[in-house]
Every structure is written in C-alpha cells, then in structure tokens.
C-alpha cells in the first residue's frame, strides 16, 4: 500500500510551526485584502451591517478551505491547459452548495446577500489561493491556507462592518438574535441621544451607509497597517 507508506513518513494531518504560520500569516503580514489586494470585488457591498458580513466571511472561508483541499487532492491529474475550467467547476459547485444551505437555514440573509453569494465564484481570493498555493502543496496544508486566508479576509470585512454599522445605524449585529442597540434617539438604545446630556448632539452619520465609506475605511486600515509594518510600504 503506497498510501500508508507515505503516511508513516510524514503524517497527513500535522500541526507544527509551519501549519500555525499558514493560519496566522494571512491575518496580518499577508492579508488577502490589504496586502495581496485579492477579493475586494464582491464582498464589500455586504459590509454595511455586521451580521451579513459575518455570514459572508464564513461562506468565503468554507469555500476557500474546501476548494483548496479538493484542488490540492486532484492537482496531479489536472492538465495545465484546462486547469482554470477545473478550478472554476470545483469553486462553482462549492458555492452552489453554500448557497443552497444558506437558502435553507436562513432565508432573510440569503435574500439580503442576493448576488454576492454567487460572486464568491469570481472572488479573486479563491482563485488566487488555488493558483498560488493549492496547485503546489499537499491537501492538509492547502486546507489550512484556505482557512487562514478566509479568516484574514473575514477579519477585514468584519472590522469594516463594525465601524459602518455603529456610526451609520447606531446598532450592532442588527437582524441577528443578539442584536445590540448602541446609540440612537429612542429609549431602546444604550445611549439615548434625546435624553443624554453628553451625546445630545449626536446623530447617525449617513456617509457610513454609502458604499464609498467602505473604501475610506479600508484605505485608512491600510494606512494604519503600513505605518506599523514598514516592510509593506509601496515603494514604487
């Protein structure tokens, strides 16, 4: 049995230093959005509320992880010339599964995310990781790389969504079971602006609801990250 022989030499599922690095690297040094500039395409539109952003982040993490895993499993059998089509079919199948699951379990969110679930297919991060990592690495590592990149992507998505929701709507996790109301004009909110003497001047910032706000926030996030991490600075 050739397979067991390979297993003895190197365990298929290991969790050493390299594996941990695969998970943590994409969170900062090699973040898919702020450093690799992949996958900004579709998902920013879902960041005006936190809850859909979390759902989107989970969906993307699942798709990147499993498409990396499956592509890595069949990588030796894919001819070079048709690899794009094979990858696209794997991704499209996984996205269809995710879409159907979401439709079944949480229809309102499915409606809200509308076309953006389908757009995970062309989310450059999925394709980018397949090309850059899964085509050249073993399944378990590719799986971890997929999870790491999904998380790095989700982290940015959720940070942007938190800022946009608090300042734009005054709430947090609206639409989910753990909805929090933070600042607003009625008694339901944690800080009631009609009664509070300290925050009486406050009203929601409508700019944050506009798509443009997501751009500004990401721009500023990149600014902050690069001022702490000078090796990422664009020299050109």
């Amino acid at each position: 049995m050739a397979e067991t022989a390979v297993k003895e030499k190197e365990p298929i599922i290991a969790f050493g230093k390299k594996e941990r690095q695969l998970l943590t690297d994409p969170l900062n040094d090699n973040n898919p959005i702020t450093v690799q500039v992949l996958g900004i395409c579709s998902a920013l539109a879902v960041t005006s509320l936190v809850y859909p952003a979390v759902v989107m982040a989970v969906a993307v993490t699942l798709v990147t992880a499993f498409s990396n895993l499956f592509t890595s499993m069949v990588r030796q059998y894919i001819p070079k010339s048709v690899r794009m089509i094979v990858q696209l079919v794997i991704i499209a199948t996984l996205v269809t599964i995710v879409e159907l699951l979401l439709k079944y379990f949480n229809y309102p969110i499915y409606k809200q995310l509308s076309v953006y679930i389908g757009l995970i297919i062309t989310n450059c991060i999925v394709m980018g990781r397949l090309e850059a990592f899964a085509m050249a690495n073993k399944p378990w590592r590719s799986f971890l790389d997929g999870i790491g990149n999904g998380l790095g992507y989700g982290a940015i998505l959720i940070i942007v969504a938190i800022v946009r929701e608090i300042f734009g709507k005054g709430s947090l996790f609206a639409g989910s079971p753990i909805e929090l109301k933070i600042i607003g004009p009625t008694a339901e909110y944690l800080i009631n602006t009609t009664q509070s003497t300290l925050f009486g001047w406050y009203s929601n910032n409508n700019l944050m609801v506009l798509p443009a706000a997501a751009m500004f926030i990401i721009g500023i996030l990149i600014w902050i990250q690069r001022s702490y991490n000078s090796k990422l600075v664009d020299v050109s």
Binding site: T34, V37, L210, P211, A212, A213, A214, M215, F216, I218, G219, I220, I222, W223, I224, R226, S227, S230, V233, D234, S236
Partner: peptide
C-alpha cells in the same frame, strides 16, 4: 503622499471620493 498611504491606500480613498462624485 504619506509613505504608508502611497499606492493602494490612496487608490481606495480616491475610489471612495469618486463614488461620492458619481452619486
């Protein structure tokens, strides 16, 4: 442009401004 904002960061902020202009 501040070094940390050069390139990508600036491109994002510009896109945001253009978005507002188109609105």
């Amino acid at each position: 442009v501040p070094p940390a904002l050069r390139g990508l960061g600036m491109a994002f902020i510009l896109t945001g401004l253009m978005g507002i202009a188109f609105m």
